[in-house]
């Protein structure tokens, strides 16, 4: 078996007295859809923030694609190929959908002040490529026609799609989605599921936080369960679903 794409080990994160992540280890293989579930406050989003560089873990190790990302800045993490979306949508509200995706390509492009001012052939070509690629990505997630709309005026579901397009614009190897189906109706959820499968088929590994257990069971290759900052189970969905510790975390202790 080849080395995992992402590997963290012994990750601790404390906020004052709160031990938000307690000795968390997990590894994600290239090409899989890896699910992360757990009750509210279990530390899922904290783990997400650690994996995307927004939080610096206190202890542990974090490697991705052969690169050590422990306590690295977010832009280094993105450069290395991890992109994310947010649980509570964080788009650039007063920019158009197209511009949002163009910003996503920042990390893969190079034009600086001189390129911007003199607009030489290289800078011009890059700018055109950025716009073309952004339109492509909007089409890819299915909101190509709304490119000129301000992000804030898009419908909720479209905003979620735009966030995914913006994250894809960074050309990630691993796409981390924080509750992408939250607030969606069943039809939208189905479309989202199809989109995620398409993304995976195109070679992007996916890390997914979601509450919708049915969606997770049908979509994920493997699932890890967090509770009170600890990983209490990991494995294929079938196994995790029947794990007594998972049932206990979600439903309380079964009566004797």
């Amino acid at each position: 078996m080849s080395a995992p794409l992402l590997k963290i080990d012994g990750i601790h994160k404390r906020f004052g007295g709160l031990h938000a992540l307690n000795d968390v280890a997990l590894s994600i293989n290239a090409g899989e859809i890896y699910g992360l579930i757990g009750p509210n406050g279990a530390g899922k989003t904290t783990l997400f923030n650690v994996l995307t560089g927004l939080y610096q873990p206190d202890e542990g190790s974090f490697s991705f694609n052969g690169k050590d990302l422990f306590r690295q800045k977010p832009y280094v993490v993105v450069e290395s190929g991890i992109a994310r979306t947010f649980q509570n949508i964080r788009l650039f509200a007063n920019m158009t959908a197209l511009e949002n995706v163009m910003v996503g390509q920042h990390v893969r492009t190079a034009a600086g002040v001189f390129g911007a001012v003199f607009r030489g052939p290289k800078a011009k070509a890059e700018e055109a490529a950025i716009a073309a690629r952004a339109q492509e990505l909007l089409d890819y997630v299915g909101i190509g026609k709304r490119h000129d709309e301000l992000a804030r005026n898009l419908s909720y579901g479209d905003q979620r799609r735009l966030e995914i397009a913006r994250a894809l614009a960074t050309r990630p190897t691993l796409l981390a989605l924080d509750e992408p189906a939250a607030g969606m109706n069943p039809k939208e959820t189905d479309q989202l599921k199809a989109l995620m499968e398409k993304i995976r088929a195109d070679g992007v590994t996916i890390l997914l936080i979601e509450h919708d257990v049915k969606l997770m069971m049908g979509l994920c290759d493997r699932i890890a369960v967090l509770d009170y900052g600890k990983k209490i189970a990991e494995g294929i969905p079938e196994k995790v679903k029947n794990d007594p510790r998972v049932i206990e975390a979600y439903l309380g202790v079964a009566p004797e």
């Binding site: 993105v78 994310r84 910003v103 994250a167």
Partner: peptide
């Protein structure tokens, strides 16, 4: 403009 709109998101976009 991205930083003006949402600095954390801008950060997370690399």
């Amino acid at each position: 403009v991205a930083i003006r709109e949402d600095e954390i998101a801008a950060n997370a976009m690399g």
